[in-house]
Design a protein around this nucleic acid. Structure first.
Lengths: 343, 343
DNA sequence: TTCTCTACTGTGAACGCTCACAGAAGCATG
DNA sequence: CATGCTTCTGTGAGCGTTCACAGTAGAGAA
């Protein structure tokens, strides 16, 4: 019953064909397509029937040409790509955003801009209006792309608080500091007192906030701070391994370690195993993210869950709102302690 | 020097503005934009200068409206998404394709169609001409989307040989059978004779071919086949774990196991550890893929590298060729044995 | 009645581009 | 000197849609 057409018409049906088929004008069809206001029930029905019969789908290019919108949003990665693709969180985020957008029938364009050159090209591409908004995933500060897009007036939502920028840019983030506090409190509750930390890079919000939470809780608990218990990594597995080795050398009496990402925690576990330390008996290990890496690790990681599904949903919600003219907004979501074997 | 414009023009410059600025007609500007044939050097130069001065970028919607092309391609996943996002191979593939396309200035639209409903919608979206071609990632056979797209005449390249379809659809794949042969030969060369296998699903090329390679080599070597040494999984970590348990129960004297994916191999390692078996001393383990999971595992996996960078490059190359009117083609790429600790 | 208001419908004009065509040179060939 | 061919250029039309506007009909108010 569908797709029936006079003869072997090869070209897809246009709004004209639908109008003729329904016995109304282009304008009326267009109105039905765009919400159906000021259309009589009879016309509404006739048009819908004609659309079904002809198999009509709106030509987005023609629509975009006149509306100036593209009805698509970009998912932009401005970091060296290895990082993101190695990080399981990224997958979850990408999937969540794709799905949230699909619910609004908005396709997502994936854009990778790892090099300086690519970044320039992508910025031009975006500012030329090929997407209506951008979901930005870039943890490091000093990222010129975000600033340029903001200036160009492109609706933008970052994942995690962009450090360098003012409050004029929207972002959605988990409550890093609070999550870190929960974890360190948990380690304290296990009786540990010599608690080390492997932080993220100091130019990322996760690097700063998680360390701050760690310091706060120790101070509140009256545990003596010790800089030898602090090492910094870059969220990669390898840097976790290196960090753990440093800590073991500097503070052999360490009895727990809070690691700012599950991936780094995997590296920490490897280093501890090599050093002959049992986890959690000798040293308890706490991760952060609750990524697939947490359950893949041996022993399975006690970690802080970032609510990635909610994060992606909120990012999309805030972006759409901004595309609709609303002001930028910041959303902070709570984290949750997930207890497994490592602590 | 760029973006200079009379007054505070807000609207981006059009081809008209460029033509006026360069003192030529729209047609000439258009010709410069599309390859510059039949344009005098003087006009060429004037137009390029005008483009630079005005900051002009072509409006893709207007162009697409008339050419009927969209100058973008889709990356389509038709499986339940968990699988792909859990699988590190997927990342590498996605990244590779994005980069290969970026070199041609073609944006990539990521499309996820896990449910029946989504699949229908996406198919309509694609056949409506919103992308010029599709990179299909779907290992299972009996996938109706591929067949529908093929019938609709949409250029299509699959990753891995689509089992159900005829030879009319392009694909790029690693040489699964040969890779499996290499691995099993390697295990034999270590002196192992009771070699188990955890296969992939029988409706995927990897499931079929890797098992076939295993059987072939054992037969050639005159090693007795034993169905108790064969278990099948679904490429997930959990299924690897379950498969290993089954094998251990059925064939306690197993001294090696070839696992059809690194992720499953991680599960196998976990099961072996629980059973008190030392790897590789008691049982050697060989994986497949050389994904990040291979190095993340303890001990690091000896595995078969799939040439993902080449695969993605070839997929893009074949797709672009097809979009240019060439016939479908199949490309098979060689694999490589990577020796690490587990075998 | 006449006027106004609301609900609905149709029409021309864009949007920015490419394409086909016609024409203008310049140069060699008949 | 006309004729053809090649290289280059400008112009009109049209891609499929939305938008602004004008117009119709019917209902209620003055």
């Amino acid at each position: 019953m569908t797709m029936s057409n006079t003869g072997g018409r090869r070209r897809p049906p246009t709004i004209h064909d639908v109008a003729r088929e329904a016995g109304v004008s282009r304008g009326t069809v267009s109105r039905v397509l765009n919400g159906g206001h000021y259309v009589s029930p009879a016309a509404q029905e006739a048009v819908n029937a004609a659309i079904r019969r002809t198999g009509y789908v709106v030509n987005r290019h023609a629509r975009s040409l006149i509306t100036g919108r593209s009805d698509s949003v970009g998912f932009l990665l401005t970091e060296p790509q290895e990082r993101f693709f190695e990080d399981p969180n990224f997958n979850v985020l990408l999937r969540g955003c794709t799905q949230a957008l699909a619910a609004h029938d908005i396709p997502l364009l994936l854009m990778l801009a790892g090099t300086q050159d690519e970044r320039r090209r992508i910025t031009r591409y975006i500012t030329a209006g090929h997407v209506d908004g951008v979901l930005l995933v870039s943890s490091h500060s000093g990222d010129p792309v975000a600033e340029e897009l903001r200036e160009a007036g492109v609706p933008l939502v970052a994942c995690g608080k962009p450090i360098g920028l003012g409050s004029k840019v929207s972002y959605v983030a988990a409550d890093d500091r609070d999550g870190a506090r929960d974890m360190v409190r948990h380690l304290l509750s296990l009786g540990r007192r010599r608690i080390g930390v492997v932080t993220g890079p100091p130019d990322t919000p996760g690097g700063v906030e998680r360390l701050a939470g760690y310091r706060e809780v120790l101070a509140e608990a009256g545990v003596e701070a010790d800089e030898r218990l602090i090492a910094s990594g870059d969220y990669s597995r390898a840097s976790g391994e290196a960090g753990a080795e440093r800590l073991l050398a500097q503070a052999p009496d360490m009895d727990a370690v809070f690691v700012a990402s599950d991936l780094m925690a995997q590296g920490v576990l490897a280093a501890l195993r090599r050093a002959g330390k049992r986890v959690p008996d000798d040293i308890a290990v706490g991760g952060f993210d609750d990524s697939p890496a947490a359950t893949a690790a041996t022993p399975a990681l006690t970690t802080i869950r970032q609510p990635w599904d909610r994060i992606s949903n909120e990012m999309v919600r805030v972006l759409l709102a901004q595309m609709g003219g609303e002001d930028p907004a910041a959303v902070i979501l709570p984290t949750e302690l997930v207890r497994r074997e490592s602590a």
